[in-house]
Simulated assay, not measured.
Amino acid sequence: MPTKEEVLEIIERAAQELREEGLTPDILLAGQEFMKHASGAVDGLGLSVYVVKELEFDAVIADSRYLGQMRKASKRISIEPLLVEEDVWEEIEKL
Rank of each mutant, 00 (worst) to 15 (best):
M1V: 13
M1I: 12
K4A: 14
K4L: 12
E5G: 06
E5V: 10
V7S: 07
V7Q: 12
L8Y: 05
L8P: 07
I11H: 03
R13I: 04
A14T: 08
A15L: 05
A15M: 12
Q16F: 04
Q16S: 07
R19Q: 14
E20K: 14
E21G: 00
L23R: 11
T24F: 00
T24L: 02
T24Q: 03
P25I: 06
L28K: 10
L28R: 08
A30L: 04
Q32N: 13
Q32G: 15
E33V: 13
E33H: 09
E33L: 15
E33M: 13
F34W: 09
M35R: 06
K36E: 14
H37R: 15
S39A: 10
G40L: 10
A41S: 11
V42G: 09
D43L: 11
G44R: 15
L45Y: 06
G46V: 06
L47G: 13
S48E: 09
S48M: 04
S48A: 05
S48V: 10
V49S: 05
Y50T: 11
Y50H: 11
V51I: 15
V52K: 12
L55T: 06
E56R: 15
F57Q: 09
V60I: 14
V60G: 00
I61S: 02
A62L: 02
D63Y: 01
S64R: 07
Y66W: 08
Y66S: 02
L67V: 06
G68P: 03
G68Q: 02
Q69L: 12
Q69I: 07
R71W: 03
K72C: 01
K72E: 02
A73D: 04
S74M: 04
I77D: 00
I79N: 03
I79K: 03
P81C: 10
L83K: 15
E85P: 01
E86R: 15
D87M: 11
V88G: 07
E90Q: 11
E93Y: 09
E93T: 06
E93P: 00
L95S: 10
L95M: 09
